[in-house]
Amino acid sequence: MNQLRNRTRVLILLIAVLLLGAVGTGAVLHAADRTARRDQAQPGAPAVDSGDVSLQKPTSGRQLVFRNMAWGPHRDELTAVPADRPDGPRTASGVHCLRFHAAGGTGICLQAEHGALDDTYRAVVLDDHLKEKRSFPVAGIPTRSRVSPSGHLAAWTVFVSGDSYAGTNFSTRTSVVDVRDWNLRDNLESFDIVKDGRPYQAHDVNIWGVTFADDNTFYATLATAGRTHLVRGDLASRTLTTLHDNVECPSLSPDGTRVAYKKRVPGLPDDAPWRLYVLDLATMTETPTAEQRDIDDQAVWTDNGALLYALPGDYGADLWTVPADGGGAARRVTGAAVAPAYVG
Rank of each mutant, 00 (worst) to 15 (best):
V177P: 05
N183V: 09
D280V: 04
T25R: 14
P269N: 12
A102H: 12
L311F: 10
K263C: 00
Q40N: 08
R90V: 06
F191N: 11
A310T: 05
V158W: 06
D128A: 11
A282P: 09
S175V: 03
V210E: 09
V48C: 04
E286P: 02
P254I: 10
R173H: 14
T321P: 00
H244W: 05
D76A: 07
S148L: 14
S190Q: 14
H96W: 12
L279N: 09
T8E: 12
V53T: 00
A306P: 10
F170S: 03
F136C: 03
P266I: 04
R146G: 05
G226H: 15
N68S: 13
T221P: 04
W301V: 06
A236P: 00
I12Q: 09
T239R: 05
L235R: 05
V160F: 12
L222T: 04
V147Y: 00
K133D: 11
D87F: 06
G24K: 03
A112C: 01
N216I: 01
A236D: 09
V17T: 12
T287H: 09
V247A: 04
N183F: 12
A236Y: 08
V95R: 15
E132M: 02
Q42H: 12
V95Q: 13
G233V: 01
T228W: 13
V65H: 06
P58K: 15
K195A: 07
V338D: 05
F136P: 02
R275W: 03
P199A: 11
T302L: 10
V28M: 14
A310V: 02
P58G: 13
A41E: 10
F159H: 07
L117T: 11
L307M: 11
P89R: 00
H129Q: 10
V81P: 08
T283F: 03
L319W: 14
W156N: 10
M284R: 02
V247L: 06
Q63W: 14
W208Q: 05
R232I: 01
A32T: 07
L13R: 08
L311P: 11
Q3T: 14
W71H: 08
K57M: 08
F170N: 01
W156A: 04
Q298K: 14
A225P: 03
D214K: 06
P199F: 04
H129A: 11
D234S: 07
E113I: 10
C109S: 10
A116S: 13
L319G: 04
T224I: 01
P312I: 04
V28S: 05
D181R: 15
D318P: 10
L184K: 14
K133S: 11
L243F: 02
T143G: 04
T157H: 07
L19T: 08
H114Y: 12
D119E: 14
D186G: 09
G140M: 15
L252H: 07
V23S: 11
P323Y: 04
G72N: 07
A202F: 08
A116Y: 14
T174V: 00
A202E: 12
S171V: 10
A22C: 05
T239C: 00
K263M: 03
Y309D: 03
V278H: 05
L307V: 04
L29R: 09
F212R: 12
F191G: 09
T59H: 09
D271K: 15
V158F: 04
P288T: 07
L240I: 03
L252R: 06
T242Y: 02
H129G: 02
L319N: 07
